[in-house]
Each structure stands twice: as structure tokens, then as C-alpha cells.
Amino acid sequence: MTDWLGMAVPPRPPRAELQGLVLAQVRAARRRPWRLAAAALVVLALGGGGLWAARTVRALRFERDDLARRAAALGDTVAAFIHSPATRLIQIPVSTGGRVGSVTIFADTVGHRWLVRCDGLAPNAADQAYQLWFITRDGMRSAALMPMDSEAPMVTTLEMPRAGAPVLGAAMSIEPRVGSSAPRGPMVFHLLL
């Protein structure tokens, strides 16, 4: 029964504008769910975008670092090939698609690595690629698949086979883009060292 005790106090009229303030607050509260939903959507979008951006930046950074490592390693390899007294230089003129080019092989006889640079080769058809071969006593062994889609020179490094028969020479043929187990297409060059 003490619930009624508030009625023991004489009433006191509120100031005139209080009712308007209450109703305004109520209306604002009724609109608030939409605003909250909109704000939540914005926050989600910003959060999602931020997450995507962070992941992309992380992936790009990883890729950049990887490329930098590979470029540095390639630089070291090139420097070693060029300056090593054990490096043998083989330059092979070639003719592809009616144009004259060259394939240059820096053969590191100590490190058993090759650096191969192709200049002036005709770009491959979409379903074809140049394939480089090691010539051994046991036959041709695939060394690298080198698809060329532009006029730009192409450089690649190769590890020479350490096991099995020694490398006697090199050859290059035009093969399907996925490569072949043995040369079947037109031969670009065939050279015994």
C-alpha cells in the first residue's frame, strides 16, 4: 500500500515546455533504431573495408618482400655468373618466326647452374611455349619451359642435373604450352657444348 504514498505530496505543475521536451525525446528514441541500424551498417562496412584493406596490404607486403628476395638472389646469381672465372659463355644465334635472335647461356661449371637469356625470339602462339632441353648421353631432359608472350627479353636460371649422365649440350624446341616429356615440335637450336 506504500505504492500510493507518493500521492501524499501536494501536486506541483511542471514548467510548460517539459511535456514538449518529453515528447521530443520519445520521438527521437523512436527514430533511434533506424539510426542505430544505419550506424551499425556504416561501422560494419568500415570494419569490413578496413579488414579487407589490412589483409590486402599484408598480402602485398608479403609478395613485395618475396619478390625483393628473389630479385636479390637473381642479382647475386647474375653477378656470380658474370664474374666467376668458371663461367662459360655460349651464344647461339636463332631464327624464329622469320626474325633473328639469340640465346645466351652463362654456364657455371662449378655451381652447376645455367643462366639463360633469350633475345629477339618471336612471341609464342597462345597454346605454345619454348622448351629448353639438356642433351645427355641418355637423351633429352627437360630443363625449362619458357613461354614468351611479348617481345621483351627473357632470363631464367636453371640447376643442372647432378645425378645421371653429364650434360653434353642444349637444345630448344617449340612445344605445347604445358610442356612435353620429349621434344616433338620444331627445333629452335640444337648445340653440343
Binding site: 501536486p11 511542471p14 511535456q19 518529453v22 520519445v26
Partner: peptide, 20 residues
């Protein structure tokens, strides 16, 4: 909302009285 206005008219003096 008009009902709230009417409730306010009827009860606000007592509510303010208790609070005062």
C-alpha cells in the same frame, strides 16, 4: 504519442510533486 501527452497532463503534477 498523444496518449503520452494526456498521461503527462494528468500525472505530471504528482510526479513532479514526489520528485520535489
Amino acid at each position: 504519442e498523444r496518449a503520452l501527452g494526456e498521461l503527462f497532463d494528468a500525472l505530471a503534477p504528482w510526479v513532479v510533486g514526489v520528485a520535489v
